[in-house]
Design a protein around this nucleic acid. Structure first.
Length: 586
RNA sequence: CGGGGCGUGGCGCAGUCUGGUAGCGCGCCUGCUUUGGGAGCAGGAAGUCGGGGGUUCGAAUCCCUCCGCCCCGACCA
């Protein structure tokens, strides 16, 4: 009996379900993972995974391993605790700020908890790789990562310790990296597909960064923290940070005429909204001027009045990841005007960056660089010069660059990210091999991550109802729960035991609800923890009949007790294709 | 880091304004009854009222201080 594996009898397991949700859980996945007894919180951003969560996560990891192994990746394991030296070599000991957990050992030597492992794998690689003949390599691991998040939130969504599948590739040239990247792309699509996620791979081109490329895998969900911009007609999809779209036309056409800029009084009107209300022109007829500080110098950023600045795009344009708004005193020093009244006309010695949406506009309203004064008839290009670039955050209703059709914004959870790294680590850390002609070259690298817990949270977000979660068969902690309605009926108990042992013997993940509870309690709990199928043994046991209920649809059918195990195995197989049975990207 | 909220048996909450020795529902334990969608009756166990300090004859309650958790924002290699 013991040889047939562990005994999954509910009465003996620790599955602490809650009737009421803990008060401070707001998002669905957090609430349900707590209620269903999957997780318990240790402290902010730190969670304990109880039996159910651990089973689910192990199934997810198994799928990941199968698909990574299938592309020739080799599983490794490196310590979570890193000496500072390797991070100093790559420059990231300084570059990364408070997000890294840092600590000292008893001798005072600096260490950190790994938040990613490029340095460590590069350290291994440079000690061992000598020849192009050893390339390509794909190494992966499934391991804890630590990030000292400023604000952990939403249960398992944003935490300080999580599990990541991270992989790293080493190739002799760009063509090799392209191939490694494509393999990962396909593997990721299969992984998320097998986990039953509705996911979207989004372009996350990193702009002018020397052709390096990245792609994020997003799970659309209102609980997500990222935005996804997509155009149904053209298939365009991008992370909001990177999305390039065409702005909607201005609400009102620009006035004709070519008069010079003309100052007018706008007492106390600082925001676009206030000025707009005051002069009767829509926000789209105004120029929003922001003074930022990049690389220690002032930069004036111009946007159409109704648009929002994209911090990421500005950082790229200024090549300063730490660009920040100027302080009011700096503003006075550099521009000589207070917040709310700055503008590009007559602005000397300050670089001006203007968003593309201002190209071909004329006779707009902008700040006059004098307190309580604005200018009308301001025409970009004539009244001021600027470098025109894309600086704007895409918004719902913008138009797709290619198709001209509207784009939409949706919230999404990032579950994976693949990235062509280039030479950053091989060069900074001295990883070199000899190529075919005996020349010493730096291999080109890629890095690829999957947030294991986020697959679970994303799945719960996408698969739940009032009763609880309804996880896909492939990642549910149990595939079947066998529920005898009344344990005191010997016939029911015997039939349930029979079904349970037949399923166990067949390798099905089955749970026997042998608790001395009333039927209602068992049904509610089974629905809450999200077991995809339930075999109920009840009043018709005398006729040799049990029921099979599908959690997701609620559909129930009668099946003879002898056939229950067979029918369930077929249902499971249909619902959860195994490795190699699914196709590529959606 | 800025703003807001909260901290009272395992969970959800009341009590705090107006100081008087802690209560409700669920859960838990025992017994009887019940048994197809979170049962009923009876009995019972369980609380440093987040910590420390202060005021007071007396503090969950008032004052000071520290800590923790949640939410919004900033931040997110």
């Amino acid at each position: 009996m013991a040889r047939h594996g562990p005994s999954m009898r509910w009465s003996r397991l620790f599955l602490p379900t809650l009737r009421e949700a803990p008060a401070d859980a707001e998002v669905a996945s957090h609430r349900l993972l707590l209620r269903a007894g999957y997780i318990r919180q240790l402290s902010a951003g730190l969670y304990c995974y109880l039996f159910l969560a651990q089973r689910s996560l192990r199934k997810i990891e198994r799928i990941i391993r199968e698909e990574m192994d299938a592309i020739g990746a080799q599983e490794i394991y490196t310590p979570e605790l890193h000496p500072a030296e390797v991070w100093k070599e790559s420059g990231r000991w300084q570059a990364i700020g408070d997000d890294m957990f840092r600590l000292k050992d008893r001798w005072g030597r600096e260490h950190c908890l790994g938040m990613t492992e490029e340095e460590v794998v590069t350290f291994i690689a440079r000690g061992e790789l000598r020849s192009y003949k050893q390339l390509p390599q794909i190494w992966y691991q499934i391991q804890a990562k630590f990030r000292d998040e400023p604000r952990p939130k939403s249960g398992l969504m944003r935490v300080r310790r999580f599990t990541m599948k991270d992989s790293y590739t080493f190739d002799i040239d760009r063509a090799g990296l392209d191939e490694a990247y494509r393999k990962h792309y396909r593997a990721y699509c299969r992984i998320f597909g097998r986990c039953g996620l509705d996911f979207v791979p989004v372009d996350a081109h990193s702009g002018p960064m020397g052709g390096s490329e990245s792609c994020e895998f997003m799970v659309p969900s209102p609980a997500g923290e990222d935005w996804l911009v997509e155009c149904r007609e053209s298939g365009y999809r991008a992370n909001l940070e990177k999305a390039v779209t065409v702005a909607r036309p201005p609400e009102r056409p620009d006035p004709v005429g070519s008069g010079p800029p003309e100052e007018f009084a706008t007492p106390g009107k600082r925001t676009i909204e206030e000025v707009s209300e005051f002069d009767g022109l829509p926000a789209t007829s105004h120029i929003k001027a922001l003074v930022m500080v990049a690389n220690g110098k002032p930069v004036m950023v111009l946007l159409r009045g109704d648009h929002q600045l994209s911090a990421v795009k500005l950082a790229e344009q200024t090549e300063d990841p730490h660009v920040r708004p100027a302080h009011p005193e700096e503003l006075q020093d550099w521009i000589g005007a207070p917040v709310g009244f700055v503008g590009p006309v007559g602005c000397q010695g300050v670089e001006v960056l203007a968003d593309n949406a201002l190209v071909d506009r004329r006779n707009m309203v902008a700040g006059a660089n004098r307190t309580d004064r604005h200018l009308r008839n301001v025409t970009p290009g004539r009244d001021f010069s600027a470098r025109f670039v894309d600086l704007r955050e895409a918004e719902d209703g913008d138009l797709d660059v290619e198709s001209g059709m509207p784009v939409h914004r949706r919230k999404a959870i990032e579950v994976g990210h693949i990235f062509k790294l280039g030479y950053k680590y091989s060069e900074s850390m001295g990883l070199r091999v000899l190529d075919q002609r005996g020349r010493s070259i730096a291999p080109i690298m890629g890095s690829y991550g999957i947030g294991v817990e986020r697959i679970l949270t994303g799945s719960v977000e996408q698969n739940h109802d009032r009763r609880g979660m309804s996880l896909p068969v492939s990642i549910a902690p149990f595939e079947v729960v066998v529920t005898p309605v009344n344990l005191k009926h010997a016939a029911q108990r015997a039939a349930a035991e029979r079904i349970y042992s037949e399923l166990s013997a067949a390798g099905v993940d089955v749970l026997l609800d042998d608790r001395a509870e009333r039927a209602g309690v068992k049904f509610k709990d089974a629905d809450l923890i999200g077991v995809p199928f339930r075999a109920t043994v009840g009043r018709r046991v005398g006729e040799g009949i049990a029921e099979i209920t599908t959690r997701r649809t609620g559909a129930t059918k009668n099946v003879t007790i002898e056939r229950v195990a067979t029918v369930l195995q077929r249902l499971i197989r249909e619902a959860a294709p195994a490795a190699g049975e699914t196709n590529g990207p959606p």
